[in-house]
């Protein structure tokens, strides 16, 4: 698994260097970023992988020299889900689910990777990484915050919630790299990657891109059929059951 990933990384790097060389002049400081792949296939033996992100902070001749280094943050958000989180409480001696809170379009994978010293914007980055896809980020309070925390720890159990301060590595003072780990339970769909560039707490540039995690092969066909053609799928399962039962009966009667 390591060698193809390395190869992909090198290809990504080559593309990146080419784009740096061809990049247009003008803006003060600009992010040029690329991923090692834009599609991750999930087959039945999928046991997790990681995707490499390479980037360069590009600047032109007029750019003023900065005292401090660059701070980079990478936010990765998996395909959104509507979830219901309930606190279990004891009523009449048994454990039941309380009413709970619903969260709309929350990421099913949430990753935040930053340079080792992300500075004062870290907290707002944390909130943004948790934010529902397509909706504005806001701080949660009270019970709602607590229940969201429970959802996050549920994701973290399956390595779907990653907070990696120092996960973005500066290879030179302008060139950076990070590895986004995707566990075996990574849901399929479109992942949005947001790269942000700060200097001294000031946002200079941001760049958004995406990659896809796709199930393929037999599992994908079964899953797609069950969701896109549920009626047909139901009839097929019934047919399978009737045939299996019939054949089983015939086989064993002969013995």
């Amino acid at each position: 698994m390591v060698r193809p990933r390395l190869l992909l990384g090198l290809i990504g790097l080559a593309c990146l260097l080419a784009s740096v060389l061809l990049a247009r002049p003008g803006a003060a400081e600009e992010l040029v970023v690329d991923l090692s792949t834009d599609t991750i296939p999930i087959a039945s033996d999928f046991s997790g992988t990681s995707i490499a992100l390479f980037g360069v902070v590009e600047r032109d001749a007029q750019t003023v020299a900065r005292g401090g280094g660059y701070e980079i943050a990478v936010i990765v958000r998996g395909p959104p889900n509507d979830v219901l989180v309930q606190r279990k409480t004891r009523r009449f001696g048994i454990w039941v689910n309380a009413e709970g809170e619903r969260f709309r379009r929350v990421p099913s994978f949430s990753g935040l990777f930053t340079t080792p010293d992300p500075g004062p914007q870290l907290e707002s980055l944390m909130i943004e990484a948790d934010a529902p896809l397509g909706l504005a980020a806001k701080r949660l309070e009270g019970e709602r915050a607590l229940l969201f925390q429970a959802y996050a720890s549920k994701l973290a159990e399956d390595d779907l919630y990653v907070r990696d301060i120092g996960g973005v590595e500066m290879l030179t003072d302008r060139f950076f790299r990070t590895l986004i780990p995707l566990p075996d339970l990574a849901p399929d769909g479109r992942y949005v990657v947001d790269v942000l560039l700060f200097v001294g707490g000031v946002l200079l540039d941001r760049h958004e891109m995406s990659f896809n995690v796709d199930k393929f092969g037999f599992e994908q066909k079964v899953y797609a059929a069950s969701h896109e053609q549920p009626l047909l799928y139901g009839f097929l399962v019934v047919t399978l059951a009737l045939v299996t039962g019939y054949v089983g009966g015939v086989v064993f009667r002969r013995n």
């Binding site: 219901l84 989180v85 606190r87």
Partner: peptide
């Protein structure tokens, strides 16, 4: 084991 229940109710 866990005091919270998480249910995915929609995509």
């Amino acid at each position: 084991a866990s005091l919270f229940a998480v249910t995915v109710v929609g995509p």
